[in-house]
Design a protein around this nucleic acid. Structure first.
Lengths: 232, 232
DNA sequence: TCGATAGTTCGGTGGCGGCCGAAGGATAGC
DNA sequence: GCTATCCTTCGGCCGCCACCGAACTATCGA
């Protein structure tokens, strides 16, 4: 293959409107799910899937499976650089200010939200980090956490229903879930759900209507400080 | 027009093999006639004419009529920069085995070439590294270089027209341009062009006909050694 | 075990665009 | 004027590829 063909091939990939829309969204540096990218590009899931596979094949994107979701991100900073150079040609300034519109509109979503049934965002990460720092949980394997004896006690004092979580044998007990805004794992699985449930039950957090966004209450903020030694 | 559409449109222009071949030839920084570009791209004159018109329309190329001939050149160094960035991507895409095949095809191009109007390849990197090592230039921000007082003196002794380069207010003075073969930044912008000009004027380097490839002369090799303390 | 959700694969369709032949300027030289 | 060369415009053909519906797989939660 000549350098010329290589040039045209990579440019052609970026030259499709749907793929360009996906790449633009990914210029925020975060990982996004296939369905999110499909929605942004304005195409069906199956069309998006084909586009994403081609871009992964060409090393423009990197993919990581997580549960039912598949997260895609730009494969390297060089990809971002090339996109930026092309956008500069069109006279439009893009990165790094080019976050997705939804993103700019919703900083609260980044702060705290539900991910299935557990907490995510800065609050989810703060809780996870605090538990790790205190030695209450430990990474176990690539995808799980282990609850230590001290963690068992800690959860008991807080009112987290650990026995109930263990009873759900069909469900993973404590999983590492990649936080798509913070780009680090937070705690999910049955234990993550039980912790979130405690937050809601004790009035530390409230779900907003018709949204994944979660509001941390004042007492929740105090609880984070006193019980977890974390500030957000 | 949205930024996304702008991205896909300019990328789609570069994504056609015939147009990519033309753009590659024009990376030598010179103006070429329509028929020459048609020959390079392997298409008929009328097909090439259509391609060229579209690229002029999109401000990728600039055209100038001269007698019966029509000369085309890259519209700006930004266009060259974008092409270079895309080529850097293309270098990473295939596994090593496939890459080296394409590589060995053009060892001379990898050694020294023009990137629009400045030097690239091993020689371009050698010059840039030597200037950095001697403290003549310093990275300034993510995309620029700063010429230090010692660099000012050094360029003056060499006959590089620094004042002339500064006078081009419309153009970036000293930019970092990612070298697609060396995968590290070399110096471009007005100063990069002035340095390259010095190389050609003093007989240190010669452009090969119909190619971006540049030949380093024996005196050029000696100059690199004595003035820059670099060996290639 | 079962339903719901996320993602992929496959097959068929439609439209965009690259291609060339033919014809039509424009310029230079005679 | 005439001719050769360079380039462009026009019209029609053809292939590629983006798209979607349908069906399938995998994972999650109950």
């Amino acid at each position: 293959m000549t350098t010329v063909n290589a040039l045209s091939e990579v440019a052609a990939l970026m030259g499709d409107p749907a793929r360009a829309a996906m790449l633009s969204l990914l210029m925020d540096g975060r990982a996004h799910t296939a369905s999110e990218l499909a929605l942004t590009a304005g195409v069906t899931a199956q069309t998006a899937s084909g586009h994403l596979a081609r871009m992964v094949e060409a090393s423009l994107l990197a993919a990581r499976a997580q549960g039912r979701n598949r997260f895609y991100r730009l494969a390297s900073s060089e990809v971002a650089h090339a996109i930026e150079a092309l956008m500069a040609l069109a006279g439009t300034r893009a990165p790094p200010a080019a976050k997705s519109a939804a993103w700019r509109r919703d900083p609260d979503l980044r702060f705290c939200r539900t991910c299935y049934d557990h907490l995510a965002g800065q609050v989810g990460i703060a809780v996870t980090d605090a538990l790790t720092r205190a030695g209450h949980i430990e990474p176990m394997g690539p995808r799980d956490w282990r609850l230590t004896p001290s963690g068992e006690l800690f959860c008991g004092r807080l009112g987290v229903d650990v026995p109930g979580a263990r009873r759900l044998g069909s469900r993973h007990f404590a999983r590492q879930c990649l936080d798509w805004s913070e780009r680090r794992p937070h705690i999910s699985g049955a234990l993550g759900a039980a912790i979130a449930d405690t937050f809601f039950r004790r009035g530390w957090a409230e779900k907003l209507r018709r949204s994944r966004t979660v509001r941390l209450t004042d007492s929740g903020r105090r609880a984070l400080n006193s019980h977890f030694g974390a500030a957000v």
